[in-house]
Amino acid sequence: MITGEKMKIRKILCGILAGVLICTGNPVISQGKVQAQLQVVRSKTMTVTLEASGGRMVKKASVAGTVTLPSDRNGSDYTFLGWSTKRGQTRNPQYQAYETIKVTRNMHLYPVRYRWSQEPDINVKNLAANLDQYSRIIFVGDSRTVMMGQTLIGQYQNSVSDKVSFICKGRQGLAWMKETAEESLTKALKAAEAEEGATAVVFNLGVNDLIHRRGTEFDYQKKASEYITYMKNLAKQLSGFNCKLFYMSVNPVNTAMKHTRKESEVRGFNEALQKGLGDRYTWIDTYSYLMKFGYTTHNEFRGGLDDGLHYSMKTYKRIYSLVMKNLKKS
C-alpha cells in the first residue's frame, strides 16, 4: 500500500517530469500520460542479439545508441572472424570483434566461422626465384615470422633459402628491433651489396607490443607513435643501401582465445602505422586479406594448439604468397 506521504512525493516527481517534457516540446498534462511517455522512451532501447558459441547473448544499445560487439572463441575446426546478419557465413564478416556499431533497429547477428577444411594448400616454391626485381628478400619479425620461415624452409629448402632470409625471434618487438635486429639487418644489407639488384626488406613487428599485462590499460596509439618515429629514423639510416622497405600489417588475433590482446587495438595500430610511416615504406595489408578470405589457427609447430595468435602452415604460405605479389607490383 502506498502511504499518503509516498503519494505526495510521487505526484511532485511526476509534476516535475511533466514540466521538463513540456519544456522540451512534449506537453504532458496528466500523470498517466507522463507514465505512458516514459514507457515509449523505454521501448525505443534497441538490442543486438548474438548467437555466440556459449549461447545466445543480448546486448542493449548505450544511451548514444551504440553497441560494442564481443569476440567469440574459435572451435575445434573453425576460426571465428566476426559477425554478420547472414546465418552460415564463412568469410568476410560485416562486423569485426570489438567494433562499435550504431544501432537504429533491433539486430540479430550470427558468427562468421572460417572452416579449416576450406583453406587451400598452395605451392609457393618458386615465388621468390621468379621475382626479378630483387636479388634478396629479408623478413624481420617475431614468432609469426619465425614460423613462416620454418614452414617455407621446411617444405622447400634451398628453393626459398637461396634468396630469402629471416631476422626474427619469438616474443619480441620494438626494443629487440633497436637493440639487436637493426645491427643484424645492417650487416645483411652490407653483404647484399655484392649482389646485383636491390634487396626487399619486409618488417612485421608489433603484436608483442600490444599486450595488456595483468589487466592494465594500454595506449596503443602511443605505442604506434613510438614505432613510427623509430621506423622513419631507420629508413634514413638505411637510405645508403640499395633496398626497398615494406611493412606488413599486424595480422589478426582472437581476444577470446588470447585475452592479452584486443582486435580493435590491432586494427587501430595498423591504421596509425599505415598513415604515419609515409612514403618511405610500402604498406602490405595482409590483415584485411586474412579477414576477407579467412585463415586457420591450427598451429602445427605447437602440437595443433590454437592460441588465437599463431597460424597454420597453410596460412603462413598464403601470407608469404601475398607478400610476394606485393613485392612484384612494386
Rank of each mutant, 00 (worst) to 15 (best):
L322Y: 15
L205T: 02
R73T: 05
V140L: 12
G268N: 05
L127E: 14
G75K: 02
A235I: 00
R115S: 04
D285G: 14
C23W: 13
L309R: 01
V253C: 08
G65Y: 14
S159C: 12
E217N: 10
Q37L: 14
F80Y: 07
R318T: 08
L152M: 06
L290K: 01
F218P: 04
V164D: 07
E179S: 13
N208P: 03
P70Y: 03
S135T: 05
H310E: 07
T286P: 02
L245S: 05
I12H: 05
G197L: 01
D219S: 11
E193Y: 13
R10D: 07
S76I: 03
S321L: 03
V164L: 08
P120S: 09
K275A: 10
E271H: 10
M148A: 14
T186H: 04
K232F: 11
Q221V: 07
R113F: 01
K325E: 03
K275S: 11
S288K: 13
M147K: 12
I29P: 15
N74L: 05
R214A: 11
A198F: 07
I138M: 15
S249D: 11
T45E: 14
E51A: 09
E99W: 05
F246Q: 02
R56P: 05
G268K: 02
L290T: 01
S84H: 06
P120M: 06
A128E: 06
I22W: 15
L210T: 00
H212R: 10
G19D: 11
E119V: 00
V146A: 09
G55I: 05
Q89D: 05
L322N: 13
T24Q: 10
G303I: 13
V202R: 01
